[in-house]
Amino acid sequence: MIILGMFLCIAAIGILCWLLFTLAIFALPLFVGVSAGTWAFNTGAGWPGAILVGSLAAGLTLGVGQILLGVVRPIWAKLAITLVFIAPAIVAGYHASHGIAKHMMPSEIWQIVFSVIGAVAVGVTAYLRVAGMTAADQSGRDVVRA
């Protein structure tokens, strides 16, 4: 049973890391949606209104980000938009890695080291995903020039 528990623990960590890497680019829309939903709830909208406002704010944030990445031409502006989406992913990656590292090792220094490594890995993954969305949008744009 102890060996089964270790394998289940490793599988759970793998699944959580996969989820973190997959959903990293949605950290900014999630933060915006939760903030807008909390604001709506505190102003008296109730649960349904808060969920509706949060969902609309999150969707609008993701949609505007994708439109801006497709429309904006200067590379420095695209990099700035990409960094706006990547910064919350890095913060989320740090805290997720730190939560896992706290359970795995007693040394606080090594916890921070592995948390920073996890944050960098999540940041790079989020950057590649956002850059991949931009490259997919731009793939057929410059094919025909007269």
Rank of each mutant, 00 (worst) to 15 (best):
I15V: 12
A96D: 15
T125V: 15
W110F: 14
V122G: 00
A58P: 00
H98D: 15
A50G: 10
P106A: 11
V130E: 00
W18A: 15
A136Q: 10
A57M: 08
G59C: 05
F114D: 01
P29E: 04
A135Y: 06
T22H: 12
P29W: 01
I13E: 11
I2C: 09
G118E: 00
V143T: 08
T43D: 09
V120K: 03
K102D: 11
A126M: 01
L8M: 13
T22N: 13
P29S: 02
V116Q: 03
R141K: 13
F7P: 05
S35Y: 12
C9N: 11
I117F: 09
G46M: 05
F31L: 14
A50D: 00
I117E: 09
A87D: 03
M6G: 15
L56C: 06
T82F: 02
P48C: 07
C9W: 11
S97I: 04
H98T: 15
A40P: 02
Q111N: 05
I67D: 04
L30F: 14
L79E: 12
H103T: 10
F26L: 10
A87R: 04
A101W: 06
Y94K: 06
A92V: 11
A96N: 10
G37I: 06
G118S: 08
L19D: 13
V64W: 14
N42T: 08
P88F: 05
P29C: 07
V113M: 07
A58N: 05
I112H: 14
I15W: 14
L62S: 13
P74W: 09
I2N: 11
L23D: 03
E108W: 08
V116S: 03
L83P: 04
V113K: 09
G46Y: 01
L79N: 12
Y127M: 06
S107R: 07
E108R: 09
A40Y: 03
L60G: 10
S35K: 07
W39E: 07
L62I: 13
T22L: 15
P106F: 10
E108I: 08
W76T: 12
F85C: 03
I51S: 07
T125N: 15
I13D: 06
K78I: 10
L19M: 13
I100P: 00
A40I: 01
L28Y: 06
V116D: 04
G54V: 02
T38P: 07
D142G: 12
A24G: 07
I2K: 10
R73F: 06
A11Q: 13
I100Y: 00
F114K: 02
K78A: 06
V64Y: 13
A40K: 02
G93T: 05
Y127T: 05
I51A: 12
G46V: 05
W39C: 09
C9S: 12
G54C: 07
I67E: 06
F41C: 05
P48D: 07
W39H: 14
V124S: 05
P74E: 04
I86W: 00
C17G: 15
R129Y: 05
Y127N: 04
L68H: 03
G49L: 04
M104W: 15
L8G: 14
L60V: 11
G63M: 09
